[in-house]
Design a protein around this nucleic acid. Structure first.
Lengths: 177, 177
DNA sequence: CGAATCTCAGCGCAACTGAGATCG
DNA sequence: CCGATCTCAGTTACGCTGAGATTC
């Protein structure tokens, strides 16, 4: 029960299982290959589902993330630079994302009173309302992870947190509950 | 020890932990939000590392996947249609991907003797050599998953397999070792 | 002055739509 | 004739580089 944007119909077998057999015969590191392929494929599937859910609200998942970030900021506004570093997106991509949110009336641009070079993106009341309903829709869909139990979700988070830490996503600190 | 393509420097805290606190206060489903955000962020980090490794071979991860698929096919050749359904990519994207591999001399196009409408993409000897060295480089980098132990890798694969199955990625069958 | 912030123009890659050619 | 396969043209989205304007 789902969307399947990319290829089309369900395959008669798990393509990763199929590749594993050949892979093990020729090379090693089967577990790494399976994990990384799962990561790519699952991400593609899940983001496809989320983007479809968000489309009726005029959002993509990337724009939704920016909106949530502003929603939870102290003053409902953040410098562009801050948005970029939090969401791992290039400065010019932040400009583009905020442009679209501004165009939809969900965000406004303001000069940064504390730094004349900077620009603040501030969420509007319409933006707050959209975040609310979009989040409700995403939660109703379990964020595309309905197949996972609580232990699975926690396990995926913990494992991928190690991957992020190793890659320098953040300065290490103990995981909080 | 890593690349960090997107945002730039390491954040002084885990952005997902930070979001979790706010999220829990306002909404529920914290575990789902953390798992899905991890999935997106880790995928972006890992594919960035892999693309960087593959760049010296003139490949992206998408093209590498296509090349591996051909490498492990029975005759070293597959119909375009088959490549698309296996890799979850649109038919026109398969055309584009194969175009580039053909341009690099790693693949050739052949008419499909069993179907006059179809086209076969066949891996060349140069293609086989590139797959070999590119795979070696990827394995040396643990596919970007050096932070994960064997149990973690198996756990991520198993959990994400359930996500894929739920979304109709393949027709259910018991996982094989 | 150098460095930081942001925007714009332009390029590359990839997904998609719609059309057309070819063949089963 | 209908449907399937593939390619091409054109659109859109997005990430990146390079450049420029502004300000610290």
């Amino acid at each position: 029960m789902a969307s399947k944007k990319g290829g089309g119909k369900a395959l008669p077998f798990d393509p990763i299982d199929e590749a594993s057999r050949q892979w093990a015969r020729r090379w090693g590191a089967v577990e790494q290959m399976r994990a990384v392929t799962s990561l790519m494929r699952a991400q593609q599937i899940v983001i496809g589902e989320l983007d479809e859910i968000l489309r009726v609200h005029g959002l993509t998942f990337a724009r939704y993330e920016a909106l949530v970030l502003l929603r939870f900021s102290q003053r409902g506004a953040l410098p562009m630079k801050e948005i970029g570093s939090r969401l791992m997106v290039h400065p010019t991509s932040v400009t583009n994302t905020i442009d679209r949110l501004v165009g939809a009336g969900l965000v406004v641009r303001r000069p940064n009173p504390e730094d004349g070079r900077g620009v603040l993106a501030a969420i509007t009341e319409a933006g707050r309302q959209v975040v609310e309903v979009a989040t409700r829709d995403l939660m109703n869909a379990d964020f595309g992870l309905a197949a996972l139990g609580e232990a699975d979700r926690a396990g995926v988070f913990a494992a991928l947190r190690r991957v992020r830490a190793e890659a320098g996503d953040f300065r290490d600190a103990p995981a909080s509950a």
